[in-house]
């Protein structure tokens, strides 16, 4: 009885602290502001620049930043400002889509594996062990290489590698929640498996998953940029940060702005996501309460 009261109290303090704590964690706030700013900028790209991100103009090659080209031009005379903004749309949309795919696959397989137990659990876990034993990037490279270079296949490659971690974590959490009294009671009172999973287990694991996902967006963006840098992701003339860095790589000494701006964009966005993720983790971490 005493224990239960304690629990309810804890939950209360949790909720009342939330908003307050978000504002107290300055780094997470910085992350939020940066991310919102970047999202706004990319969303308003057509309003901010009239330059076409794929228009080639050989008279304007490798121009330094100027009034018409706020971030300069690349080796084909394309406006880097426009390319960075439109590239942000591509990079972030893809990252979000990949994340949704990963979450769907990872969470459902983790739930299945943890809840069912037995042979299915064993089988799934061994498959995951095998996948985890491969170095992730190399596996993604191999998949993208076999499927052929384009954005769709890059998404498949990244998702195919990244879902494994989620499945494992979700399974672990399900295993512990499964043993809780309220799940056992629900089970004995005849609640169906589906509703136990959806009503009693899923709500209890969703918040740590959100934290994990926020932390992961950064690494997904990096991985996609990495594959694009290697020529396996976005194909020309699609603007994409990783591909832009690859284009400008050879001009790093003569025209550093070609790689600086997309590089800085990746840095900012990944950092923002990581800071927010860190903040969220602190928020949900019982130890810090």
């Amino acid at each position: 009885m005493e224990h239960k009261i304690n629990l309810t109290q804890q939950v209360k303090t949790y909720k009342s602290l939330n908003i307050h704590k978000v504002f107290k964690d300055k780094m997470a706030l910085v992350g939020c502001v940066v991310l919102i700013l970047v999202l706004l900028l990319t969303a308003m790209a057509p309003l901010l620049t009239r330059n076409d991100p794929v228009k080639v103009d050989l008279m304007e090659r490798l121009n330094p930043p100027s009034r018409t080209y706020p971030m300069g031009t690349d080796h084909l005379g394309r406006c880097i400002f426009a390319r960075t903004l439109y590239g942000g749309r591509v990079s972030m949309t893809i990252a979000i889509i990949v994340l949704i795919i990963i979450l769907t696959i990872g969470v459902s397989i983790g739930l299945l594996s943890g809840y069912m137990g037995g042979f299915i659990d064993n089988f799934i876990m061994r498959v995951i062990d095998i996948l985890l034993a491969f170095p992730g990037l190399i596996l993604a490279l191999a998949i993208a290489g076999i499927l052929g270079p384009n954005l769709m296949n890059t998404m498949i490659a990244v998702a195919a590698v990244q879902w494994v971690g989620y499945a494992r974590i979700v399974r672990g959490m399900v295993l512990s929640i499964k043993e809780k009294d309220y799940v056992k009671i629900a089970s004995t009172s005849g609640t169906s498996h589906t509703s136990i999973i959806l009503r009693h287990i899923l709500p209890n694991i969703i918040s740590p998953i959100i934290v994990l996902a926020t932390l992961d967006v950064g690494s997904i963006i990096l991985r996609i940029a990495g594959l694009s840098f290697l020529g396996l992701g976005a194909q020309p003339p699609t603007p994409e940060w990783g591909a832009m860095i690859n284009d400008g790589r050879s001009y790093i000494q003569t025209a550093p702005w070609v790689i600086f701006f997309p590089g800085a964009a990746i840095l900012l966005v990944v950092m923002a996501f990581n800071l927010i993720g860190d903040g969220l983790r602190d928020l949900y971490d019982p130890k810090s309460v």
């Binding site: 794929v54 080639v56 050989l58 084909l76 194909q235 020309p236 003339p237």
Partner: peptide, 26 residues
């Protein structure tokens, strides 16, 4: 092939002006 790569991007652009959609396969 760096030379072909840089030229192909411009060729893609010039062909789009006469209504040809060119996909580059490396």
């Amino acid at each position: 092939n760096e030379e072909d790569k840089i030229l192909s991007a411009v060729i893609q652009n010039q062909l789009s002006e006469i209504g040809i959609d060119l996909e580059l396969v490396h």
